[in-house]
Design a protein around this nucleic acid. Structure first.
Lengths: 343, 343
DNA sequence: TTGTATGCGTTATCAG
DNA sequence: CTGATAACGCATACAA
């Protein structure tokens, strides 16, 4: 017979005080006499009392929980982002409710609705570029939220960085090294705003330096080591005369480098490889690779700060005079070139 | 002025029915007349009603939420594991509450307590090898839980795989290739049960084949690309005469391979590299690397199934006659050798 | 099939 | 400083 876990009431009885006192002992200890406080905590420990979050949430109308929805996070830069977000939230006493349905499931269910039902005080959302109605709706409902890794032009509270600038940085760097024929292995842009912006940025940067990206020097593929390997094999077999390759993310880059090695093409001696660094930097610093360090952790931290600020505001019983849609775009540090030390 | 979000009551009034009816319309639609059901849902849509999870949880004594605690998950195999767990739980209508404090924070706070307060129906726990009291306590409290990636000998409901067997597989494979001098770059074993088991397994497998691991052929380092690179540089400079290297995880392996390349040592021509594959397989299949495919996703799926089964049991108003501590160890498929196709 | 009433465990308000 | 007591929003047993 599962005996019901101890409640505030049980603690109160054991300590010989009222429930109100126990509640205060937990949330506002300074309001109690040394003596009663001690009595209460003794009872709490004795019973191994654990507060019931649901009841608290119901009474306080706050759950101390923040929801995050991202498209998949196993092995992608998203996990780094989420980790940073989680760290900051935890420090502030919040917990992260996660929804990361992979592609197939994303259509069936509505992760945001699920999170809202569970009761989150705020939301961090990655993706949904094609669903502006969702943000409007959240705004109408007064749910604090922020878009993660968002496109530059988002009308909603967003955090992100300038992918175009990152692309420019990269092209600049290679140009400075003397490269005039540059190939590009990018991610699929169909349903990926980030991949799209990256490609766009590359094209712009190239053309502004009077270079072009012939179609046989460009490959669009899924992010992945094997895909990068295959793509590079293709590029080689096409024998167009590039001297540098830009890769849409670091998995592609790592794969590409391997392919070059296998073909006995020295890197960066004969061909330079540069890549956007979606994933954890320290774990992936390939000495043969020039990497654009993207401010991903900063993004997570800033997102958390924005949300927490917003939540604290909400705690003060004042109407939030700032319409969410006008909140200034939070910003991260700029992307920077990361030179490998080993080459 | 934040107008209070619509409640069951509001819906009921608008639809001209009672709260009980609305409640049933949502959870047990089949019990209602076509007509009233329709009326109710119209009201729901009109008001954009979203059920209040806290209230529901309070009334039902279940939160439809599962907590997971892992030590850090940005860029590690843990993210793959969590993704698999999340997928399965989502399909079953559950949501994942995540706690992944990095090392520093793990000491300050108690993630498990936090999760329990938030109200989770069950827990999936990775780590805590040195805190048996925690599991005892959870068991006493009747909280369904499972240990993830657990050591073989855990007395609690656990899921994991045989690291020794994986190590043996690896050594076997290299032995079959003719290697007799094998080096090992492993993770730090101090606070990492998995790293410890891996090293142990390697040692056992080697000695059972009359090979040894001289101390200058063994390096213990943090998991990471750069660390693997550095470790391999060291091994090379020590000029001991190994012909193969086993790496504790794939970051180390990737770094090691890079170092070999930089030193113009052909892989696997001159030196073979093999590594445990903690991370997402498809993203990391390095053609120059022989990899032990670890059943990580299976682990996540099985963990979810175990928990869900346990939860369903709990839904049936029967006492759980099975003491948790005697539940059979769930198992995953065996680890398998993954040959690279490109070499 | 639907309505009514009570309980779930806390917090918060208001007296004392 | 502490004790009653009324919400909080929903599920459910029971009554109609």
């Amino acid at each position: 017979m599962n005996k019901r876990p101890p409640s505030l009431n049980d603690v109160a009885t054991l300590a010989g005080v009222s429930t109100g006192t126990v509640s205060r002992a937990i949330s506002k200890p300074h309001l109690l006499t040394e003596k009663t406080r001690k009595r209460v905590f003794e009872a709490i420990n004795q019973l191994r009392y654990v507060p019931n979050g649901a009841a608290r949430a119901l009474a306080m109308k706050r759950t101390l929980t923040v929801g995050a929805v991202v498209p998949r996070f196993g092995s992608s830069g998203f996990s780094t982002l989420l980790q940073a977000l989680e760290n900051e939230l935890t420090d502030a006493g919040y917990t992260l409710l996660l929804s990361a349905p992979d592609h197939k499931r994303a259509q069936d269910i509505n992760p945001i609705a699920t999170l809202l039902e569970r009761g989150v005080d705020a939301l961090a959302i990655l993706g949904y570029e094609d669903r502006p109605d969702i943000f409007t709706s959240l705004n109408d409902q007064g749910v604090p939220f922020i878009r993660l890794w968002a496109p530059q032009n988002s009308p909603w509270p967003s955090i992100g960085f300038d992918e175009h600038q990152a692309a420019e940085l990269m092209v600049d760097y290679l140009y400075g090294l003397g490269h005039r024929k540059i190939a590009f292995i990018g991610g699929k842009i169909a349903h990926n705003e980030r991949a799209r912006e990256r490609q766009e940025g590359i094209m712009l940067a190239l053309s502004s330096r009077n270079m072009s990206l012939p179609s046989d020097a460009r490959i669009e593929s899924d992010y992945g080591f094997q895909e990068g390997f295959d793509a590079m094999q293709q590029l080689i077999s096409r024998s167009c005369d590039f001297t540098a390759v830009i890769c849409g993310n670091d998995y592609l880059a790592a794969g590409a480098i391997s392919a070059l090695h296998v073909n006995d093409i020295s890197v960066p001696g004969k061909i330079s490889v540069a890549g956007f660094n979606d994933n954890d930097f320290s774990a992936f610093l390939n000495p043969a690779l020039t990497t654009i360090r993207l401010p991903i952790e900063e993004m997570g931290r800033n997102a958390a700060h924005y949300l927490l600020t917003h939540l604290d505001k909400a705690m003060i019983p004042l109407p939030m005079e700032l319409p969410v849609s006008l909140v200034k775009r939070a910003s991260t540090g700029p992307a920077t070139i990361q030179n490998s030390q080993a080459c």
